[in-house]
Write a protein that binds this DNA or RNA. Structure first.
Lengths: 139, 139
DNA sequence: CTTGACCCTATAGTGGCTAGAGGGTGCAGC
DNA sequence: GCTGCACCCTCTAGCCACTATAGGGTCAAG
Protein backbone atom coordinates (compact mmCIF):
# COMPACT_ATOMS: atom_id res chain seq x y z
CA UNK A 1 0.00 0.00 0.00
CA UNK A 2 1.33 3.41 -0.96
CA UNK A 3 2.06 5.55 2.08
CA UNK A 4 -0.62 8.29 1.85
CA UNK A 5 1.33 10.75 3.95
CA UNK A 6 4.25 10.98 1.49
CA UNK A 7 4.48 14.41 0.00
CA UNK A 8 6.02 15.76 -3.16
CA UNK A 9 8.12 18.84 -2.74
CA UNK A 10 5.37 21.18 -3.93
CA UNK A 11 2.97 19.72 -1.38
CA UNK A 12 5.51 20.12 1.39
CA UNK A 13 6.15 23.68 0.26
CA UNK A 14 2.45 24.50 0.43
CA UNK A 15 2.04 22.75 3.78
CA UNK A 16 4.83 24.75 5.39
CA UNK A 17 4.70 28.07 3.56
CA UNK A 18 8.18 27.51 2.16
CA UNK A 19 9.46 27.95 -1.34
CA UNK A 20 10.48 24.80 -3.21
CA UNK A 21 13.91 26.22 -3.92
CA UNK A 22 14.33 26.99 -0.23
CA UNK A 23 13.53 23.38 0.66
CA UNK A 24 16.17 22.20 -1.80
CA UNK A 25 18.58 24.73 -0.33
CA UNK A 26 17.98 23.42 3.20
CA UNK A 27 18.64 19.91 1.97
CA UNK A 28 21.81 21.03 0.28
CA UNK A 29 23.19 22.62 3.43
CA UNK A 30 22.18 19.62 5.49
CA UNK A 31 19.52 21.31 7.57
CA UNK A 32 16.79 19.07 6.22
CA UNK A 33 17.69 15.42 5.58
CA UNK A 34 17.46 14.22 1.98
CA UNK A 35 14.26 12.19 1.61
CA UNK A 36 13.85 8.96 -0.33
CA UNK A 37 13.05 9.26 -4.05
CA UNK A 38 10.29 7.88 -6.28
CA UNK A 39 11.10 5.86 -9.38
CA UNK A 40 10.88 9.13 -11.30
CA UNK A 41 13.47 10.74 -8.99
CA UNK A 42 10.93 12.89 -7.20
CA UNK A 43 11.52 13.54 -3.51
CA UNK A 44 9.04 11.76 -1.25
CA UNK A 45 8.62 13.53 2.08
CA UNK A 46 7.16 12.00 5.25
CA UNK A 47 5.39 13.62 8.19
CA UNK A 48 8.69 13.74 10.03
CA UNK A 49 10.15 15.93 7.31
CA UNK A 50 7.12 18.18 7.44
CA UNK A 51 7.45 18.60 11.18
CA UNK A 52 11.15 19.33 10.95
CA UNK A 53 10.66 21.89 8.21
CA UNK A 54 7.86 23.57 10.17
CA UNK A 55 10.22 23.84 13.15
CA UNK A 56 12.84 25.41 10.90
CA UNK A 57 10.40 27.91 9.42
CA UNK A 58 9.02 28.95 12.81
CA UNK A 59 12.53 29.48 14.07
CA UNK A 60 13.41 31.49 10.98
CA UNK A 61 10.33 33.61 11.47
CA UNK A 62 11.68 34.38 14.93
CA UNK A 63 14.92 35.55 13.41
CA UNK A 64 17.17 32.67 14.40
CA UNK A 65 20.06 32.06 12.01
CA UNK A 66 20.28 28.73 10.27
CA UNK A 67 23.19 27.75 12.53
CA UNK A 68 21.17 28.59 15.60
CA UNK A 69 18.33 26.51 14.22
CA UNK A 70 20.73 23.64 13.63
CA UNK A 71 21.61 23.89 17.30
CA UNK A 72 17.99 24.06 18.40
CA UNK A 73 17.21 20.97 16.35
CA UNK A 74 20.06 19.08 17.98
CA UNK A 75 18.93 20.17 21.41
CA UNK A 76 15.35 19.20 20.70
CA UNK A 77 16.42 15.69 19.68
CA UNK A 78 18.13 15.12 23.02
CA UNK A 79 15.03 14.65 25.13
CA UNK A 80 16.79 13.81 28.39
CA UNK A 81 18.92 16.91 28.22
CA UNK A 82 18.49 19.91 30.50
CA UNK A 83 16.69 22.67 28.64
CA UNK A 84 18.91 25.47 29.97
CA UNK A 85 20.84 25.49 26.70
CA UNK A 86 17.64 26.26 24.81
CA UNK A 87 16.90 29.04 27.23
CA UNK A 88 20.37 30.48 26.72
CA UNK A 89 19.99 30.44 22.95
CA UNK A 90 16.66 32.22 23.10
CA UNK A 91 17.98 34.73 25.62
CA UNK A 92 21.04 35.67 23.62
CA UNK A 93 18.96 35.94 20.48
CA UNK A 94 16.49 38.20 22.30
CA UNK A 95 19.38 40.43 23.40
CA UNK A 96 20.56 40.70 19.79
CA UNK A 97 17.08 41.63 18.62
CA UNK A 98 16.75 44.25 21.36
CA UNK A 99 20.15 45.70 20.44
CA UNK A 100 19.11 45.89 16.81
CA UNK A 101 15.89 47.66 17.81
CA UNK A 102 17.89 50.21 19.81
CA UNK A 103 20.20 50.81 16.83
CA UNK A 104 17.28 51.31 14.49
CA UNK A 105 15.57 53.64 16.90
CA UNK A 106 18.67 55.83 17.07
CA UNK A 107 18.79 55.79 13.32
CA UNK A 108 15.11 56.68 13.02
CA UNK A 109 15.56 59.62 15.42
CA UNK A 110 18.35 60.98 13.32
CA UNK A 111 16.36 60.62 10.14
CA UNK A 112 13.42 62.42 11.75
CA UNK A 113 15.71 65.24 12.84
CA UNK A 114 17.02 65.55 9.32
CA UNK A 115 13.54 65.60 7.86
CA UNK A 116 12.46 68.32 10.27
CA UNK A 117 15.39 70.49 9.27
CA UNK A 118 14.22 70.46 5.67
CA UNK A 119 12.54 73.68 4.61
CA UNK A 120 12.23 73.00 0.89
CA UNK A 121 14.01 75.00 -1.76
CA UNK A 122 16.84 73.90 -3.96
CA UNK A 123 19.60 71.41 -3.41
CA UNK A 124 22.23 74.05 -2.71
CA UNK A 125 20.18 75.10 0.32
CA UNK A 126 19.15 71.60 1.28
CA UNK A 127 19.63 70.93 4.98
CA UNK A 128 19.54 67.17 4.47
CA UNK A 129 22.30 67.24 1.89
CA UNK A 130 24.22 69.59 4.16
CA UNK A 131 23.87 67.19 7.05
CA UNK A 132 25.19 64.34 4.94
CA UNK A 133 28.00 66.49 3.61
CA UNK A 134 29.34 68.32 6.59
CA UNK A 135 28.98 66.58 9.91
CA UNK A 136 32.08 65.14 11.51
CA UNK A 137 32.57 61.56 10.40
CA UNK A 138 31.70 59.10 13.13
CA UNK A 139 34.37 56.45 13.66
CA UNK B 1 54.92 71.12 -6.52
CA UNK B 2 53.36 67.90 -5.23
CA UNK B 3 49.77 68.39 -4.21
CA UNK B 4 49.89 68.02 -0.39
CA UNK B 5 46.25 67.05 -0.10
CA UNK B 6 46.64 63.86 -2.17
CA UNK B 7 45.99 60.84 -0.02
CA UNK B 8 46.95 57.25 -0.32
CA UNK B 9 44.19 54.76 0.21
CA UNK B 10 45.24 54.03 3.78
CA UNK B 11 45.14 57.72 4.61
CA UNK B 12 41.72 58.08 3.05
CA UNK B 13 40.53 55.04 4.98
CA UNK B 14 41.73 56.51 8.26
CA UNK B 15 40.25 59.93 7.44
CA UNK B 16 36.81 58.54 6.77
CA UNK B 17 36.63 55.51 9.06
CA UNK B 18 36.34 53.18 6.09
CA UNK B 19 38.15 49.95 5.41
CA UNK B 20 40.57 49.96 2.49
CA UNK B 21 38.83 46.99 0.91
CA UNK B 22 35.54 48.84 1.16
CA UNK B 23 37.00 51.85 -0.66
CA UNK B 24 38.20 49.56 -3.44
CA UNK B 25 34.78 47.93 -3.49
CA UNK B 26 33.05 51.30 -3.87
CA UNK B 27 35.36 52.14 -6.75
CA UNK B 28 34.65 48.80 -8.36
CA UNK B 29 30.90 49.35 -8.25
CA UNK B 30 31.26 52.90 -9.52
CA UNK B 31 30.11 54.64 -6.38
CA UNK B 32 33.46 56.36 -5.88
CA UNK B 33 35.27 57.52 -9.03
CA UNK B 34 38.63 55.89 -9.72
CA UNK B 35 41.37 58.37 -8.74
CA UNK B 36 44.58 59.07 -10.64
CA UNK B 37 47.55 56.80 -9.91
CA UNK B 38 51.15 57.44 -8.85
CA UNK B 39 54.06 56.09 -10.87
CA UNK B 40 54.01 53.10 -8.53
CA UNK B 41 50.32 52.45 -9.33
CA UNK B 42 49.12 53.72 -5.97
CA UNK B 43 45.78 55.52 -5.91
CA UNK B 44 46.10 59.27 -5.23
CA UNK B 45 42.96 60.72 -3.67
CA UNK B 46 42.01 64.39 -3.54
CA UNK B 47 39.87 66.31 -1.10
CA UNK B 48 36.91 65.85 -3.43
CA UNK B 49 37.21 62.09 -3.07
CA UNK B 50 37.41 62.41 0.69
CA UNK B 51 34.27 64.52 0.78
CA UNK B 52 32.39 62.14 -1.46
CA UNK B 53 33.42 59.11 0.60
CA UNK B 54 32.43 60.86 3.82
CA UNK B 55 29.01 61.51 2.33
CA UNK B 56 28.72 57.86 1.39
CA UNK B 57 29.74 56.68 4.86
CA UNK B 58 27.35 59.01 6.65
CA UNK B 59 24.54 57.82 4.42
CA UNK B 60 25.48 54.19 5.04
CA UNK B 61 25.50 54.85 8.77
CA UNK B 62 21.93 56.06 8.37
CA UNK B 63 21.02 52.79 6.72
CA UNK B 64 20.64 53.99 3.13
CA UNK B 65 21.40 51.31 0.55
CA UNK B 66 24.19 51.93 -1.90
CA UNK B 67 21.64 52.52 -4.65
CA UNK B 68 19.86 55.10 -2.55
CA UNK B 69 23.20 56.75 -1.88
CA UNK B 70 23.91 56.78 -5.58
CA UNK B 71 20.66 58.66 -6.00
CA UNK B 72 21.42 61.07 -3.17
CA UNK B 73 24.78 61.83 -4.72
CA UNK B 74 23.16 62.58 -8.06
CA UNK B 75 20.60 64.81 -6.41
CA UNK B 76 23.25 66.63 -4.41
CA UNK B 77 25.20 67.40 -7.58
CA UNK B 78 22.19 69.10 -9.17
CA UNK B 79 22.27 72.28 -7.12
CA UNK B 80 19.43 74.05 -8.93
CA UNK B 81 17.08 71.17 -8.43
CA UNK B 82 14.16 71.24 -6.02
CA UNK B 83 15.03 69.32 -2.88
CA UNK B 84 11.68 67.55 -2.62
CA UNK B 85 13.25 64.42 -4.12
CA UNK B 86 15.74 64.29 -1.28
CA UNK B 87 12.95 64.71 1.20
CA UNK B 88 11.04 61.86 -0.42
CA UNK B 89 14.06 59.54 -0.27
CA UNK B 90 14.60 60.27 3.40
CA UNK B 91 10.92 59.89 4.18
CA UNK B 92 10.54 56.54 2.49
CA UNK B 93 13.71 55.31 4.14
CA UNK B 94 12.41 56.44 7.53
CA UNK B 95 9.19 54.51 6.91
CA UNK B 96 11.20 51.38 6.12
CA UNK B 97 13.23 51.77 9.28
CA UNK B 98 10.09 52.26 11.36
CA UNK B 99 8.52 49.17 9.76
CA UNK B 100 11.61 47.15 10.56
CA UNK B 101 11.50 48.37 14.17
CA UNK B 102 7.86 47.28 14.43
CA UNK B 103 8.73 43.84 13.01
CA UNK B 104 11.57 43.40 15.44
CA UNK B 105 9.43 44.51 18.35
CA UNK B 106 6.82 41.88 17.51
CA UNK B 107 9.58 39.36 17.26
CA UNK B 108 11.08 40.41 20.60
CA UNK B 109 7.66 40.14 22.29
CA UNK B 110 7.25 36.62 21.05
CA UNK B 111 10.73 35.64 22.20
CA UNK B 112 10.00 37.11 25.63
CA UNK B 113 6.76 35.17 25.83
CA UNK B 114 8.62 32.02 24.95
CA UNK B 115 11.27 32.68 27.55
CA UNK B 116 8.66 33.28 30.22
CA UNK B 117 6.99 29.97 29.45
CA UNK B 118 10.21 28.14 30.20
CA UNK B 119 10.15 26.40 33.59
CA UNK B 120 13.38 24.48 33.28
CA UNK B 121 13.58 20.71 33.26
CA UNK B 122 14.40 18.49 30.34
CA UNK B 123 13.93 18.93 26.63
CA UNK B 124 10.91 16.66 26.44
CA UNK B 125 9.11 19.09 28.75
CA UNK B 126 10.59 22.20 27.20
CA UNK B 127 7.96 24.83 26.50
CA UNK B 128 10.23 26.66 24.03
CA UNK B 129 10.82 23.56 21.95
CA UNK B 130 7.09 22.84 22.15
CA UNK B 131 6.31 26.30 20.87
CA UNK B 132 8.66 25.86 17.93
CA UNK B 133 7.30 22.38 17.24
CA UNK B 134 3.57 22.73 17.50
CA UNK B 135 2.12 26.09 16.63
CA UNK B 136 0.21 26.38 13.37
CA UNK B 137 2.53 27.41 10.59
CA UNK B 138 2.07 30.99 9.55
CA UNK B 139 1.72 31.43 5.76
C1' DC C 1 0.50 10.92 -28.41
C1' DT C 2 0.26 15.76 -26.63
C1' DT C 3 0.21 19.09 -23.28
C1' DG C 4 0.58 21.32 -19.10
C1' DA C 5 1.82 21.05 -14.37
C1' DC C 6 5.23 19.52 -11.81
C1' DC C 7 9.85 17.81 -10.83
C1' DC C 8 15.07 17.54 -11.38
C1' DT C 9 20.25 19.49 -11.22
C1' DA C 10 23.52 23.01 -11.75
C1' DT C 11 25.08 27.49 -11.68
C1' DA C 12 25.17 32.15 -10.85
C1' DG C 13 23.38 36.11 -8.65
C1' DT C 14 21.51 39.41 -4.71
C1' DG C 15 23.63 43.25 -1.21
C1' DG C 16 27.42 44.86 1.20
C1' DC C 17 30.95 43.78 2.30
C1' DT C 18 35.32 40.69 3.72
C1' DA C 19 39.30 37.38 3.57
C1' DG C 20 43.13 35.60 1.46
C1' DA C 21 46.63 34.55 -2.17
C1' DG C 22 50.38 36.30 -4.52
C1' DG C 23 52.98 39.94 -5.89
C1' DG C 24 54.85 45.09 -6.19
C1' DT C 25 56.38 49.88 -3.97
C1' DG C 26 58.50 53.10 -0.83
C1' DC C 27 61.42 54.41 2.63
C1' DA C 28 64.14 54.27 6.85
C1' DG C 29 68.06 52.20 8.80
C1' DC C 30 72.29 49.82 8.34
C1' DG D 1 73.17 49.29 -2.09
C1' DC D 2 70.56 45.96 0.75
C1' DT D 3 67.05 44.64 4.00
C1' DG D 4 62.93 44.74 6.25
C1' DC D 5 58.72 46.54 7.27
C1' DA D 6 54.63 49.00 6.23
C1' DC D 7 51.96 49.83 2.70
C1' DC D 8 49.99 49.15 -1.87
C1' DC D 9 48.15 46.36 -5.95
C1' DT D 10 44.74 42.80 -8.47
C1' DC D 11 41.97 38.91 -8.37
C1' DT D 12 39.00 35.56 -6.64
C1' DA D 13 36.06 33.50 -3.59
C1' DG D 14 33.29 33.59 0.42
C1' DC D 15 29.67 35.15 3.98
C1' DC D 16 24.21 34.68 4.84
C1' DA D 17 19.88 33.21 3.28
C1' DC D 18 18.06 32.77 -0.08
C1' DT D 19 16.62 33.44 -5.40
C1' DA D 20 16.62 33.23 -10.52
C1' DT D 21 17.47 30.89 -14.58
C1' DA D 22 18.79 27.40 -17.99
C1' DG D 23 17.96 23.03 -19.65
C1' DG D 24 15.99 18.80 -19.23
C1' DG D 25 12.86 14.80 -17.19
C1' DT D 26 8.20 12.85 -15.13
C1' DC D 27 3.33 12.31 -14.65
C1' DA D 28 -1.32 12.14 -15.73
C1' DA D 29 -5.41 13.77 -18.12
C1' DG D 30 -7.43 14.33 -22.52
Amino acid sequence: MTEPSLLRIGDLAAATGTKIVTIRYYEKIGLLPAPPRTGGNYRAYSTTHRERLSFIRRSRALGFTLDEIRELLELSADTERDCAAVDRLVTSHLVEVEDKIADLQRLASELRRMKESCRGGTIDDCRIIEALSSQPTLP
